[in-house]
Amino acid sequence: MSSDAFPTRRPALDRLDGAWAADKAAQVLMFVAGISAIVFILGIFAFIAREGLSFVFSRFSFAEFFGSIRWAPTSNSNPTFGALALIVGTASVTGMAMIVAIPFSLGAAVYIAEFARGRTRETLKVLVELLAAIPSVVWGFIGLSIMNKLIIDVFDVSVGLNVLNAGIILGLMAAPIMTTIAEDALKAVPDRYREAAEAMGATRWQVIRRVVLPAARNGLASAVLLGVGRGFGETMAVLMASGHSINLPTSIFDSVRALTATIAAELGETAVGSDHYGALFTLGLFLFLITFAINLTADLVVRGIRKK
């Protein structure tokens, strides 16, 4: 009787078996994987900073970098490193992209989250994700060939590679990820808010406008910010569609050159350690800080709602 209830061959309480070892190993592995993101970010930042800072401390002039539009790092007689035109180029293309992407992505997100049901919904979500997977060089190609001709024909301008072209391409590229994040934000609005409003007689549209959108505003703002971050960082498509000429744009039909495109196009042809090389890394450092700040803001904005 007692031998049934308490079998004599009991495992020792202090024995560490295979499962224990596997658990410990998995914990260590997860920890390493987890902090590797931090390690990589810091490592990349350190590398860019090291390459760029030598330039920052020797040749760099704040007034020239942010105040001059003369980017002529390869000039023999008088090399200049004015990044203003590049910064404005990136900003104008990104701005144009948001004008395109915000209505598209918010409209799509509202439709998918609030109206589409069942099969339509699932199909749309898959399509949006597919759209996000199109390589940027393909978008650039569309900009270079199709959009270029289209803009020349429709607006009767001489060059179709400009802010408008790059902005539209970039907007279409950023829209899918913005749609996905905005849709998540709308889905996160508890259904009882909708029910409460409907029970008071709100129509579908009133529910969306007066309840769902305000309740999701932080998530929507972060979707837009991530889109902006995407715009600042995108390289290939912008290089191909923007015209890549140094210019302070006065209209959407002016060609511009982006920070990213400059680095991509020039870095291969510089001597390691030269001023030009360092200046390109300084551009990179600047880009890194901006996108980092944008993404951080987006993240904080989203956390804002959770706390409330």
Partner: peptide
Amino acid sequence: MVFQRPNPLP
């Protein structure tokens, strides 16, 4: 209508 779980709008 008044619901089971109070549901004021946010």
